[in-house]
Amino acid sequence: MKTYIALLRGINVSGHKKIKMADLRLLLEKEDFTNVKTYIQSGNIIFSSQEEDSTKLEHQLFTLIKENYDFEVPVLVKNAEQIKDILDKNPYKNKEDLASNKIYFVVLKEAPKIENSSILSSISFQNEQLVITPTCVYLRCALGAGKAKCTNNFIEKKLKVSATTRNYKTMLKLQEMALI
């Protein structure tokens, strides 16, 4: 049995695509997911499964949400080791930045093409820096995400891959919860 973290994109934002995490947790438990835990309302689910293929799990979760809530939600599933690896490779180590919500992780569904990464790398915004890897775009927003120009949607369009963004504190908490 393997531990996974599902990252749902775009739920419970400004009253759109509302999903109560407690209800979702119960739904997953009925579908034979085990050790189901959720973290905050932005769509973070930790669970265990016998399934080894994260793509199958993504599809299963996507279908469950579509059937039970009647809207589509992009789902990324990573195993606990992948989340740890993403955190370990974070190039932004400044403790003040980490503590003050200036570091973000744009978790990628798949590796972007090199030419798309090159295009994104060539664009710069004042007070924002990014590092692109095959699994994650590490983003430092000196003024916070609310004022950032380099948004999740922007990154998805430039890289031509699905992604969802979490801050450092959330990623750390997900890793911690996956280990419990």
Rank of each mutant, 00 (worst) to 15 (best):
A99W: 10
Y92S: 02
P112S: 04
I40A: 13
P74F: 10
L7P: 00
N90D: 10
A111T: 13
H59M: 10
K95T: 13
K20Y: 06
Q82E: 15
I11R: 08
L7R: 00
K66N: 09
D85L: 14
E115W: 06
L98T: 10
N12M: 03
I86V: 15
K17R: 14
G43W: 01
F71T: 01
A22W: 04
L26Q: 13
L28T: 03
N68R: 09
E115Q: 11
V75Q: 02
S48G: 13
I83G: 04
E58M: 10
E81V: 11
K37T: 12
F105T: 00
I65G: 02
K17T: 03
S42E: 01
I86Q: 02
K109W: 02
L108K: 06
I86F: 00
S118Y: 06
K109R: 12
D97L: 10
N68G: 08
E115D: 13
L28E: 01
D53P: 05
D88R: 15
S118I: 12
S117D: 05
I114Q: 12
F71Q: 03
L61V: 07
N35E: 14
L57A: 00
S117E: 13
H59S: 13
V77D: 08
I86P: 00
E58D: 08
P91G: 05
Y39C: 01
I11W: 09
K56M: 09
G15L: 04
I40F: 11
I19R: 01
D88Q: 15
S118F: 07
K95Q: 14
I40S: 15
I86W: 01
E51L: 08
S48D: 15
E81S: 15
R9F: 00
I46R: 01
D97N: 13
Y104M: 12
A22Q: 12
L8P: 01
V106D: 07
S48C: 12
P74A: 09
L61I: 14
N68S: 15
M21P: 06
A99S: 14
K102R: 15
S48Y: 03
L76M: 09
D23V: 03
D85I: 07
I114L: 13
S48E: 13
S42G: 09
I40K: 14
F47I: 02
E96W: 15
G15F: 06
F47E: 01
L61C: 09
Y104S: 02
S14D: 01
K102T: 07
D85A: 14
L24R: 01
E72N: 13
S117L: 05
V77R: 02
N116W: 00
L24E: 01
Q60I: 07
D70C: 10
N68Y: 05
N79G: 03
K95N: 07
K113Y: 04
N12H: 04
I65D: 03
V75G: 02
I46Q: 03
